[in-house]
């Protein structure tokens, strides 16, 4: 059985739709991981021990275990205790939480690195602690870690392929559907890989622009 790419055009619409879903999942999970990362970082740094310790355990578990396992837990596990998430939501939540933990580590270090004088000055001007964090400290901290957070988001795009395993019809599963009809795994997986590669290039370009803009705002 040789290679025959002539069957590919018939399924390009399916693959293309899958690529759009991959982008949707990636964007949704990226946004969740960004704000989740800030949220976790603030809790880890400022919340009382009683709140901090369980979060620490959660972070530990999420950093020490494979994403695929976490997706299985969220999708197949939560059903058994009565929480029935649609596959798409489970995928976005799983990817988002996983990368939120990694982003939180970055943001924590960055918050600590912001000069103490910034907080003191903000408090002197009459801002509350929360306001000072939100409007003065966190924006500066986040600005410093945009490049590594961007790397995490590129990793997130590639890991979004894993949600095919819980049945989200994104790029990988769309390729599998086409393979199911044509029995041409090599051709369609290579096409899917090309789509990922192109999305990856696009995402890198967007991230570079954001980085440049953030640098200019300094």
């Amino acid at each position: 059985m040789g290679l025959d790419f002539s069957v590919v055009p018939d399924y390009l619409d399916v693959i293309f739709l899958g690529a759009l879903w991959t982008i949707a999942i990636t964007v949704g999970a990226a946004v969740l991981s960004f704000f989740g990362g800030i949220f976790f970082a603030v809790i880890a740094l400022y919340a009382p021990t009683l709140v901090r310790l369980p979060l620490r355990a959660f972070e530990w578990l999420f950093m020490g275990t494979p994403l695929l396992l976490q997706l299985f837990l969220i999708y197949f596990g939560l059903v058994q205790i009565g929480i029935d998430l649609p596959a798409f939501v489970a995928g976005v939540v799983g990817l988002g939480l996983h990368f939120a933990v990694y982003n939180s580590e970055l943001i924590q270090t960055a918050i600590v690195a912001v000069d103490k004088g910034q907080m003191e000055a903000a408090r002197t001007v009459g801002l509350s602690r929360g306001q000072a964090l939100r409007k003065v400290v966190i924006p500066q901290a986040v600005r410093d870690v945009i490049p590594p957070i961007g790397n995490n988001m590129i990793a997130l795009l590639k890991d979004s392929a894993l949600v095919s395993v819980i049945g989200v019809t994104e790029l990988t599963l769309s390729a599998q559907l086409a393979i199911g009809r044509t029995y041409r795994p090599f051709e369609f997986y290579v096409v899917a890989a090309l789509f990922y590669y192109i999305i990856n290039l696009g995402m890198e370009a967007v991230l570079r622009r954001i980085e440049r803009r953030v640098q200019a705002a300094r």
């Binding site: 590639k158 890991d159 979004s160 392929a161 894993l162 095919s164 990988t172 390729a175 997986y189 899917a192 890989a193 990922y196 590669y197 990856n200 290039l201």
Partner: peptide, 8 residues
């Protein structure tokens, strides 16, 4: 590095 390990 530009494509998912799962696809590879």
């Amino acid at each position: 590095r530009g494509t998912p390990a799962l696809i590879q």
